[in-house]
């Protein structure tokens, strides 16, 4: 395996990675996706051994080649019905963990429905973004700008939701202290299980960086505005460092 990877050129490896992301975010069957990637990898290795360029295999436009392949592959609705609720639950867990530190939980109907809506929209946005970025050759700066825009979208929408929730009153569900503790424990177990299953700590790292700095700085004697600035810096700086580190780990 390792020997093969070394034989393959950087260009071909990037194409295979992009194709993987493209097919995955198009919701294609995972088994079929892995099979075609393996097949193309094998083909590219042989072709490069014989001195053929990648253009000779996939044509001038990687994008149109990816589309051609994608068109012939089936969409795996079954596993998406499994993934999407899990991801929405993931978003809720992050919100809940953040709120637990502010005392007993209580949510209005609008907040609950709005959060489901925003998470679904965010998932659709992410899927579109990955498909777009993998199919088009963009500079790193442009990729980062797109990610920032898509990443910022739910933040903006959630802020909008908070204001809307203040203006419009809908029935509220309140959990007492016992209820809150039970929910917090269940959510934490879910997050750990989910992270273990998805083999990533990001779902634990992000809520931790969002809620812990605020919570811990609350115990210091700093002025509120200083606390806010330092807290925000730790939150976003921490997440950025985490993403950078895990990216570097993935590459090596």
């Amino acid at each position: 395996m390792i020997k093969q990877e070394a034989v393959l050129s950087k260009e071909s490896r990037k194409f295979l990675d992009d194709l993987h992301v493209y097919l995955f975010s198009s919701g294609k069957n995972e088994k079929e996706t892995n099979e075609i990637i393996e097949e193309l990898k094998d083909h590219l290795i042989e072709a490069e051994k014989n001195g053929k360029s990648i253009e000779h295999i996939i044509g001038i436009s990687p994008k149109s080649y990816m589309e051609q392949l994608s068109k012939e592959m089936s969409v795996d609705y079954k596993s998406w019905f499994k993934y999407i609720p899990l991801m929405i639950l993931g978003v809720f867990s992050i919100i809940i963990i953040g709120d637990v530190f502010d005392g007993p939980l209580s949510y209005s109907l609008l907040e609950i429905l709005g959060s489901i809506g925003i998470s679904s929209l965010f998932l659709a946005g992410i899927s579109f973004t990955f498909r777009y970025i993998s199919a088009n050759q963009l500079s790193t700066v442009n990729e980062l700008i797109i990610f920032a825009l898509v990443g910022g979208m739910p933040i903006g929408l959630f802020i909008g939701l908070i204001f809307l929730d203040r203006a419009v009153s809908t029935p509220t569900i309140s959990f007492g202290i016992t209820g809150t503790i039970i929910i917090a424990v269940v959510t934490t177990i879910f997050l750990i299980a989910f992270s273990y299953w998805a083999k990533t700590w990001i779902l634990l790292v992000i809520p931790a960086f969002f809620s812990l700095p605020d919570f811990l700085l609350g115990y210091t004697t700093m002025v509120e505005s200083t606390r806010l600035i330092i807290g925000t810096l730790i939150t976003y700086g921490g997440i950025a460092v985490y993403i950078l580190l895990s990216n570097r780990k993935r590459k090596t």
Binding site: I36, D42, H43, I57, Q68, K71, E72, M73
Partner: peptide, 28 residues
Amino acid sequence: YGYELAEKLGEYGFLNFSEGTIYPLLLR
């Protein structure tokens, strides 16, 4: 297998096509 197919096509004179085109066809 895939690469063999592309090679054969090349031997028969199909030279100016991208070899990868055979995979969408094979999928279909």
